[in-house]
Amino acid sequence: MHELSIVESIVDAVTETAAAYPGARVKSVRLRLGVLAAVVEDSLQFCWGLATEGTALAGAALVVKSVPVRVHCAACGRDAEIEGVQSFRCPGCGEPAADLRQGRELEIESIEIEEPDKVSESAKEQVGECGLPPFSR
């Protein structure tokens, strides 16, 4: 059960990235998880809910894309996806294929953020010198 540690790492990375967009809200976080990443999506979703509750990331969706295993076959030279993770053999020629090219991914692909629209010039004029709108002065 290391999903909580993984979620904490995701929260840190997303918070760091989102800080470059002040005022923006994170709508969703897209992950790429290899079939061999040994991470359970259900646990990840559960921990995500817990870890983001009451924070700026609350309500952001965690979207998980599963990445299948691809191997390179030394015998016939092809790169191919294998079905499942019970036998690492080339689906073409049936030879054992130890050279893993894909399937261990554990990465944040992107985040979707919602930004407030830029304040227009006319709207800016209504803001006083102190930077606050008139009603709050």
């Binding site: 993984i6 790492s9 995701i10 840190d12 990375a13 990235t17 967009y21 923006a24 709508k27 992950l31 554990l106 990465e107 944040i108 692909e109 992107s110 985040i111 979707e112 953020i113 919602e114 930004e115 407030p116 629209d117």
Partner: peptide, 15 residues
């Protein structure tokens, strides 16, 4: 409100 996708392509266990 404007929605924007920020590409990260970052390993979760990067640290």
């Amino acid at each position: 409100m404007t929605t924007r996708i920020v590409e990260l392509r970052q390993g979760i266990l990067k640290k």
